[in-house]
Nucleic acid binder design. Structure first.
Length: 497
DNA sequence: CAATAGTATT
């Protein structure tokens, strides 16, 4: 056998060995060691296969193989690493790798593009220009009409909150899949575009696009946001008709929908049906529903039962349990849970937990303790935490502290370039204590920045049709009658609940 | 090799 043939043979052998241990870090290390000994790891082809095999389970090892390539890593090696990062907790290194890839003169292919779009959608701090750039790349390379690329692109825009762009893209897509719709509907729910989400759901049914369990989950989130009980019920019926059993995801969405729509009874019924499929999410949704309806004690009972059932609480479960305590005035129970969170369960409290604790202690009149919480925090308190403390100091007549907090909060606001909603929130806090000077200052600042708060509105479902009412809305033909009824409820001493 | 529940606050 000639030298060249021998080399090729050894290389092929090694590559198949590498492929055989994808995801198995220990075996991979052994195969890599053999590659090094045989002097084959620098071969870009071998290196790339090693990167691909190691990336899903052992990133440092993948980088080792990546850097070994001579003269440089191949496109395939870049793609594997970028893909691994796009799926990880912090996808941002995917972009540095992409930059390095471009610098070494390699073009992004379909796989790289898909991974980068996924990374954009999952990063919390992606800038719109990143997605715009990837969009341009897709167009330039003629990949924009590929169904998966188009779906990922639409999802990337939607994750930024640019839903109008996503909807336009959807409109222009020659073919759309279930996944395309699911991605968009769930983003609508996340960005409070509930009505659009439900419209898309209906559109799917009308044009015969297949609806799966995930579609129903996304649709239910929209119903929950709208309080559209009727629509929620028909999605529930749809689920019962199509699926043999309730998955925990679907059950959890149903719980959320029913409790947010005010039907605790139906939520309970679903929860009872879920005996074998209850996980942390399901327990959490039920707890939150109870707390929402003023049943804090029951929520805490559920929290206890969950742990007895052997389901470990996570960060969100604690958020919910603490909120139940704060909301229902169970101050001692809340303090105990907060302590045990780290002490017994080893879960580090985060910003939300601190915020709820400050709120809870403030309501209990324990301002000292609330301040201690803020001082004990590992990072700078967010505006929510400071706002809770401000609220507490106002309720407790602490002028000094209040003044200090007001200054801090305003600084935070101005540097962050906030949206309208929070400005209004802060100005309401000032208004509540009659500090009209401060109210004026904030309002002026908002005008300067061209910020406007979206008008408040409520939605009411009657006979399956949604009706929208803006603040001080008088356009409905039956306006007078409605206001009369409202006033009647006020003065007639009619009690709700 | 496209998307994926449950929380808190405005």
């Amino acid at each position: 056998m000639s030298g060249a043939a021998c080399f090729a043979d050894a290389r092929a052998h090694l590559v198949s060995a590498l492929d055989a241990c994808i995801g198995d870090s220990r075996h991979l290390k052994r195969a890599l060691a053999r590659a090094v000994v045989a002097g084959l790891l620098p071969d870009p082809f071998v290196s790339a296969r090693a990167v691909a095999a190691a990336a899903p389970c052992d990133l440092p090892l993948a980088y080792l193989a990546f850097r070994a390539a001579v003269p440089r890593p191949s496109s395939f090696a870049f793609a594997s690493l970028i893909r691994a990062h796009s799926a990880s907790l912090d996808p941002s290194p995917a972009f540095s790798l992409f930059a390095a890839m471009l610098r070494s003169g390699l073009y992004p292919d379909r796989f790289v593009l898909l991974s980068l779009l996924r990374a954009s959608a999952r990063c919390t701090n992606t800038s719109p220009s990143t997605v715009l750039f990837l969009h341009a790349v897709a167009l330039r390379r003629g990949l924009h009409s590929d169904l998966h690329v188009a779906t990922s692109l639409l999802h990337a825009y939607a994750s930024l909150g640019l839903l109008d762009v996503s909807l336009k893209l959807l409109d222009e897509m020659p073919q759309k899949s279930t996944v395309t719709y699911n991605a968009l509907i769930s983003c609508c729910a996340k960005s409070a575009w509930y009505e659009h989400g439900l419209d898309l759901f209906t559109e799917m049914l009308l044009q015969g696009t297949h609806v799966n369990a995930d579609t129903l989950v996304a649709g239910l989130s929209c119903c929950a946001g709208l309080g559209a009980l009727g629509h929620g019920r028909s999605i529930h019926a749809c689920a019962v008709r199509r699926l043999s059993c309730l998955t925990s995801e679907l059950g959890t969405s149903l719980l959320q929908m029913y409790t947010k729509c005010g039907s605790l009874e139906e939520a309970r019924r679903v929860f009872d049906q879920m005996q074998t499929t209850r996980d942390v999410s399901a327990w959490t949704a039920m707890m939150s529903g109870l707390a929402m309806h003023g049943q804090g004690e029951e929520a805490l009972d559920l929290f206890e039962r969950m742990m007895k059932d052997g389901v470990a609480p996570d960060s969100m479960a604690f958020t919910t349990a603490l909120h139940a305590c704060s909301h229902c005035g169970l101050f001692e129970a809340g303090a105990k849970i907060f302590k045990e969170m780290k002490g017994v369960h080893g879960i580090e409290p985060r910003m939300e937990h601190f915020g709820i604790m400050v709120d809870l202690l403030g309501r209990a009149g324990q301002l000292e303790e609330a301040m201690q919480i803020v001082e004990s925090m590992p990072s700078k308190p967010s505006k929510v935490v400071l706002g809770a403390l401000l609220h507490a100091s106002m309720a407790n007549g602490e002028t000094m502290l209040r003044k200090q907090l007001e200054r801090q909060l305003l600084e935070l606001e101005t540097e962050a370039g906030e949206e309208g909603g929070f400005f209004v929130g802060v100005s309401n806090l000032y208004a509540a204590v009659g500090r009209w000077n401060e109210v004026c200052k904030i309002r002026n600042k908002m005008v300067e920045k061209g910020l406007k708060k979206e008008k408040g509105f409520s939605l009411v479902e009657v006979d399956g049709k949604l009706h929208k009412f803006l603040v001080a809305d008088k356009r409905h033909p039956l306006t007078m009658e409605m206001y009369r009824t409202l006033h009647g409820m006020d003065s007639g001493g009619m009690m709700l609940e």
